[in-house]
Design a protein around this nucleic acid. Structure first.
Lengths: 219, 219
DNA sequence: AAAATAGTGTCTGTTAGACATTATCGG
DNA sequence: CCGATAATGTCTAACAGACACTATTTT
């Protein structure tokens, strides 16, 4: 069997969460060269003796860097080439992930930090490109799927759900239309409980499935 | 610097084209183990001394296996794990590509063959999954982009364009609506020439850009 | 003239978004 | 009762799809 020199293989992830109702990203300080000390997307090499497959590698990496099991994880794109890492030819399978605010520990002296999604600093490697693609994908997919619901806790009100959609997409939505669509797509179901926030109590909902649901599109 | 054992890295591609108006896929006979002699998606190892990046690797592989430069090439998904290749932990960056019928040489005793997209046989490795994902992506994206236009030659009529959309999506489209949408999205422009096919001559069009154009979506 | 294909016009049911109205809580 | 938030109802302009009609060529 012929043998070829193999590129380095790693996984990186853009982990999104909410903080005070606004979209944030988890960035990690690099603890080794290259770019030691700089802020970057959390990442790690694929460990072929430890990881069963690529998604498992991404989950392990996120567990090690942030301590959590992410409820939503999706492969984004694979970046690979001679120059993306100053050391050698490498490829990185990029993921993006969503986690509710409450499940992410407060980073007190932790190795990672939360950065508002509209104030991402310049990042090393090709992480700028990864970040841009992750945001683009998150925003695009949110407009026709239940994706933003994965940023919310177990139960939530329709007002909260609408607010998350607006935060992620970056534009206001008409209330009646939003409720019509959410209802007819069946992406949430009422729990029967209610919760008041200074006015009429709101019906509480939960995601009707643990998997992403795409809206029916006429086009 | 710590050293990890690296997975094998390869690229595979589902290359689509038209044959007699119907969607076909290019499959290649494997010339080595494993699965020697079987039909599979064309693929090759990434050559880090030769390929500048992953897309270049895919283009080189397609050039070597089919002899063509593909006009449209897009990364699909990266499959990687311990068991996908019987030899060792490997990952494959899967692509899909579109080429007009005329640009693909007739495979006379060639190492590849054309298979109708609705009669794909069982494939080795995880190529079944790749193939299903490629078809799904092609069909999905075709419903809201200019993607199918890359299956047509330089110039074409609106009837031909509609026919390709219908072939790819697998459903008939209302003529008036189709023309309205194509016009307002500006994905094609008239060449000024016409061509007759037994009736009133049809206006010829060309793609207005060499890049994919996504339709404006209200959602 | 007839057949064939290209291209356009009209109508109707549906629906997104705007807006207003009603409902239900706390104080 | 008042303020606040939730939830629903109504109206209209826009448009997708159905269908029919006109236009322009070849035979």
């Amino acid at each position: 069997m012929e043998e070829f020199a193999r590129p380095d293989a790693m996984v990186d992830a853009a982990l999104f969460t909410l903080r005070d109702g606004a979209l944030h990203v988890v960035l990690a300080r690099r603890d080794r060269e290259p770019y030691q000390g700089q802020i970057a997307l959390p990442g790690a090499y694929v460990h072929i003796d430890e990881d069963e497959n690529l998604e498992a590698a991404a989950r392990r990496m996120l567990r090690e860097k942030t301590g959590i099991e992410v409820p939503y994880l999706e492969q984004l794109y694979t970046f690979g080439g001679r120059l993306r890492d100053p050391r050698r030819w490498s490829l990185s399978v990029a993921y993006y992930a969503l986690v509710p605010e409450a499940q992410l520990p407060v980073p007190e002296g932790a190795a990672f930090q939360l950065v508002p999604a509209d104030r991402i600093p310049a990042l090393p490697f090709d992480h700028d490109e990864m970040m841009a693609m992750a945001l683009r994908r998150l925003r695009g997919k949110s407009s026709y799927s239940s994706l933003p619901a994965f940023l919310l806790p177990e139960t939530f009100t329709l007002s909260e759900l609408q607010s998350v959609y607006e935060q992620v997409i970056g534009t206001e939505l008409p209330k009646a239309t939003f409720r019509r669509r959410i209802e007819e797509q069946g992406i949430v179901e009422p729990t029967g409980e209610t919760r008041s926030d200074g006015g009429r109590p709101a019906q509480l909902y939960r995601r009707s499935a643990d998997t992403l649901k795409e809206f029916d599109r006429t086009i």
